[in-house]
């Protein structure tokens, strides 16, 4: 890797703060899933009501917790 490439990498890290994250935890992955739901419900082809969106998130949490417990 050349110095220039390293500098570019560093610049990317500075500019795109998401890439500064460490290895993602299980909770972080779940958080991203919730945000994905938010996006779909807000900007998806068919945006939905707040209560519908919260129900979907709630179900996801329950599902994840169930799987976690095995």
């Amino acid at each position: 890797m050349s110095i220039e490439e390293v500098l570019n990498e560093l610049k990317d890290i500075r500019d795109q703060t998401e890439s500064m994250l460490d290895v993602e935890s299980e909770m972080e992955i779940l958080l991203k899933e919730i945000i994905k739901i938010e996006r779909q419900h807000l900007y998806g082809l068919e945006s939905t009501s707040v209560s519908k969106r919260r129900n979907v998130i709630q179900e996801l949490l329950i599902e994840k917790l169930k799987n976690k417990k095995g």
Binding site: I34, I35, E38, R54, I57
Partner: peptide, 16 residues
Amino acid sequence: HLAENAVVDLKEINKK
């Protein structure tokens, strides 16, 4: 705003 929405939604689910 998406992440902030998520926080509001999680708080409301918690209250529920």
